[in-house]
Structures are given as C-alpha cells and as structure tokens.
Write a protein that binds this DNA or RNA. Sequence first.
DNA 1: CTTAGCACTCCTTTCCTATGAGTGCTAAAC
DNA 2: GTTTAGCACTCATAGGAAAGGAGTGCTAAG
Lengths: 345, 345
Amino acid sequence: MELSERKKQILKAVVEHYIASAEPVGSKTLAQELGVSSATIRNEFAELCDLGFLEQPHTSAGRVPSPQGYRLYVNELMERRNLTPQEAEGIDETLRGKLSGMGGVLSNAGQLVSSIVNYPAYSVKSGNVGLTVERFELIPVDATSFITVIMTGDKNVKSQLQHTALEFDAARLADLKNLLNTHFTGKSRAEMSAHLMNVSEQLTPELFLVLSRTVEYAAGILESAGRRDVETTGASRILTMPEYRDVDKAHELMTFLVDNKENLPVPEDGAPLQILIGPENVDEALRDTSVVIASYDIGDGMRGLVGVVGPTRMDYATVTARLSYFAESLTKMFGKGLPPPKEEK
Amino acid sequence: MELSERKKQILKAVVEHYIASAEPVGSKTLAQELGVSSATIRNEFAELCDLGFLEQPHTSAGRVPSPQGYRLYVNELMERRNLTPQEAEGIDETLRGKLSGMGGVLSNAGQLVSSIVNYPAYSVKSGNVGLTVERFELIPVDATSFITVIMTGDKNVKSQLQHTALEFDAARLADLKNLLNTHFTGKSRAEMSAHLMNVSEQLTPELFLVLSRTVEYAAGILESAGRRDVETTGASRILTMPEYRDVDKAHELMTFLVDNKENLPVPEDGAPLQILIGPENVDEALRDTSVVIASYDIGDGMRGLVGVVGPTRMDYATVTARLSYFAESLTKMFGKGLPPPKEEK
DNA sequence: CTTAGCACTCCTTTCCTATGAGTGCTAAAC
DNA sequence: GTTTAGCACTCATAGGAAAGGAGTGCTAAG
C-alpha cells in the first residue's frame, strides 16, 4: 500500500530532523514546518507507527524513524542531491593530494573515504584467485645472489634479492630461469608445488633448494594477490556521535571494525551503490548500524570496493552523494590513467 | 635524598595496587599487607605526599602515585620479572604465526606488540635518508613496454611494468639501461633530478620522457624509503580502561594516535628500552599517558622501533618484560634469518 | 616511633521531587 | 470526515537533600 503524500512528507521530515539532531522528533516541530496543527501530525504519527515506519523510544517521547522508515526514505524520499562545488573540490583535492603523494590510492581508499564522509570506512581489495605467474626473470648480482623478478598475469611485477649457497654463473642462471618459465608459469599455487615435487629428483639438492625458494616466493605473491583484503579506517570517528557516547557500545563496534573486518558486508552483485540499513545487515554487530557500499572500476575488469559504516541515523544523502562522486572519480582516474598505477604496494 | 626502606615498600605497594585496581589506595589496605597499623601508613603517606611521590585525588581519598612516584617505581622498585613460560610461548606463537603468514613482520610489529601487551602500540620504520639506487635493470616485455627493476643501496629490490610511447628494441633498451646505470646510480633524489635536466638536451623528447618516468619511479622509491613511517594499532584498546571511560578523553587520545602519530616519541639514543611517564612526554596530548619504547636490530646496523602507549597507570612490569622479549626475539630472528627478509612491503 | 581513637571531609549513592516535552484522546470546529 | 483545541497523563531528565562510607589528619597514649 502506498502512503499518502503528507505521510511521506512527515516521514521525510522526521528522518531529516533526526539525522541532524539525534533526538526524537516531536509533533510541534513538524507542525510549524508543514503548516498544520500538532494534533494532525500526532494522528499521522500514530498511523506511521502502526505501519512500522516510525518508532517511539518511550511513551511520551517524540518519534524516531524505524529501519523500515529509513528504507523508504532512502528508496523514495531522499533527494539525491548533487555535491556543492566546494564539496566536489574538497574531494578532488583529497584525491589529488594522495594520488601524487603515495603509491596506492587503492590501499588508501578507505582512509580517503573516511575523511570525505566523516564516518568509519573500509576498502576491500578483492582477491584475484585465478592469478598465475606469467614470467620469471633472474638477474645476476654477484656469485651467490641474484634478483628474482616475477610478473603475474595481471601485469604486476614483484622482485626480491635472493641469496644462495650455490655459485651461479650466467649459464646456470639461464638454465634455472628456463626451468622456471617452462614449468612454473601459468600454474596455480597448488600446481606449482606439485610440479616442484616432480622436478625435485632431476636436480641436485642445492639447486632444488634455490628453485623451491623462488617458487615459494612466487607462491607467496599469488597467495597475497588471491587474498581478499579488507582495511578499516577512521573507526574512532564514531566517538563523536551521540549514539556512541556509551563507551561499551563504541568499543563493541570498534573492535568489530578492527578485528572482524572480514565480516563487513561485501555485496556480490555489481550495483554501483548499495545501502544496508540496520537489521538488513546479517552480522549481529552491525544491527544498529548502516553501511553504504560503492564499487569502482580499477580497469582490467576488476572492481574495487569501499564502504562506509555509521549509525542508522546516518546522513544518507551526503554519504551517498560523496561516495558516488568518489567512486566515479576513481573509476575515471583508472580509466584514463595511461598506465594504471602498477606501483607495488 | 634516599627514601627509607619502608617508604619504598609502601610506594611500591601503592603503585602496584593502583595499577591493578585503578582506584586510590587507602591506608587500611596496606596496613594489613605490611603488618603495621593504618595510622603508621598514613604518616608515611603524608610524607610521601610532601616528597611528591604520591598524590591525593581529594582530601578524603586514598593515595595515587604521582608521575615521580611511577618514575621511582620503574627505576628502582619494580621487579623486572621474567616471563612465565606461558607468556613466552604466547609471544613466540604470535611471532611464528605472523612470520610465516605475512611478508613483513616489520610492518606488523605494532599490531603484534599491541596484541601482546594489550595496549595501543606503534611501530616506526626509520627512514633511510642517504639511500641511493645501486643498480637499474630493464627487462623487455613487448615492443612498447619493459620492466624496470631497481635495486637500492640497502639491497631492496622494487620493480614496475612501464609502458612507453616508443618502440624499444634490445639495443635501445640496453642504451637506456646504460644511461641509467652510469648517470643515476649512487645519487640522491635531488642529484637525480638535476642530472635529468643535464641530459635532457642530448635526448629525443620521447626518450627523455621514458627516462624521466624511470627516474621518477626511482626517486619515488628513495623518497618512500627515506620517509619515517609510523603506524599505530590497537588504539581502541583504551576503551576497556577505566581512565578512558570518558568518551571525550578516549577520543582525544585516539585521534592523536591516529592523526598525529608522527609526533609519537622516537628517542634517538640507542637504549634498548625506554619509558616515558606522563609529563615526561613532550607532547601535550600524552601528558597523562606513559609510553614504553623498545628498539630491535633489523640487521645492516638498522634499528626498528616499537612503542606502547597507555595510561600512566600502565602495568610497567608486564609491558617491559613482554616488550623486551619481543624486541629480543625480533633481533634474534633478523640476526639468524639467513637472508634477512628482503620481501617487498 | 607506633597506634588507637575520633572528628571531619567529601565522594558516591539513593531517593525524592519538580519540570517539561511530548503524547493520546475527546469533543468541538471547519 | 478531517482538522484542531484542550486536557489529563506519561516518563525521561535534572536538581537537591540525605544517608552512607571510605579515608583522612590529628591528638594523645602506649
């Protein structure tokens, strides 16, 4: 069933007042605003309560939006405002500063978002599970050490100095490199270690040791690339919010954000922006919080993910606007950025 | 002037009770413990107050150690206990787990320490300012891209895929590599950019662009290696401590730990363990906190640094014991670790 | 020098009482 | 039939008084 226009207006007003003040909204406040008497508002309040859009903290208090109320607000009532030029400029500024300053925007995405929206935030590096090594290179350094360079299928390059017990002349190194490139490229971690066993008998123990070191290094790279990494930042921002004046509540959420970050919601579908309100979160610890998640394009068809966590009384309009803008900016940056930052993390 | 033995005992007892309970210690408590009457204790209390080792929150409350009291406790009174086997095992366990699991123990040092001592902690990666590039390597990938490998003076290796507008055959690449190795090794960032200007005229603009990209990449590496990095972890742990039941106080410290981490104390001298108590901290924000800092040997004569932050009522005995053990373990690990972990961060 | 005794301080807790914002309901007005 | 004025009622919050109690400082005796 559809709410009357006035009910919607009232709900919208309640949500917005409550977001701004964190205090239950009374009928008088809205009476002035909507040009009807407080009694009328009260009647509407009562109905909105029955319908489950509003709640009363206690009998003689004002009204507070229920999760369902927020949901309707977010879906239909909220004005999807654009950023003010100042806001946009601020975000651009933040992005520019960090982009040139540090290697990875990606690893800082959470931090950036948190400072942009002023709520705790998290960023997810989705694991690239099918990744394999595309190429091995070995560069001689001195008699007993060489540089291992590994390029993975996603064109990332990692390298490491490797000391050995063996002496390597150019020819032996070339042999080793050949061995690596013929037998250990295009293989998963499991396949690599299986293969390592296969060749173990054809090699001297010393050479085998060197080889397995290199392969382990490669496996480590694949493993870390395959791992889904979640980083949270700005958790302490909740301490400024009235809902977390209670230290225990704050502590609970903060430890969750830090220790259980893997359980933060990561929607699988590709919606550019997703909002989870209160009990819509599966995780018990997020039942009175809302999460806004945006995804952005990293290039190579890969997607990055950033989320914002806050009380259900979150400023959805601002957060969604800013987060969308941020995600779009990032997508643009990766789209046009000539060589996408292959900088090592 | 030297305190009487009994005064020391009393001070010690007060400190230890207060550390355990966070509540002012009364004369009765200690009377039982020391086998004298509460009146005697009170007399001693009064004198210890006059001498500045104890304080009274208010006239009719028990006594609390003053910073000076903690200082004496730490310097003379505290029993530098050894770890219980369980504690040692726990730390070893933590170290082992993280060591094999992740690349850098270093970057996780703060986190490890925080979990070991149960206070917020930080780790400092001291900047290597005089670092230069030791060697450039370029590995052809396809016509218009190659891998840049850079080994720095400290034997760390970083690499990146570089796309160019130019076509590079093996000979040109070798030329470029030569140019890099003859003119841009052993140079500081400033010298590198100066040199870049010098050679700019002898090259085609396209080639110059490629060269400068590579040099910029190198400069970036040196810059990040030269930067002193501080990371804090476990800040939320303060929320369990009675002194931070007050959200505003907690918030103040937490934002300091996160946003001003560069201002966390980094002693220059090489003491293996240093303790800063309350007002001994220069920074205003740390005036009611204590900081315990340990340094450990990374090899190559470099030192790592980890610090623990907590209320002045910190459990110094446990923290120092565990932190020392941790630092020693790390030193040992780096000492014997055959090739010290040159893993890229 | 130690200790029992005692008056005193002052924090903490508890209980009580306004206060007041806000409600639900009824009955009149539009 | 919706809107509104009026009114009794609810209940969280703030303020203040009183009680309780832990701990003190001081004095005088052991």
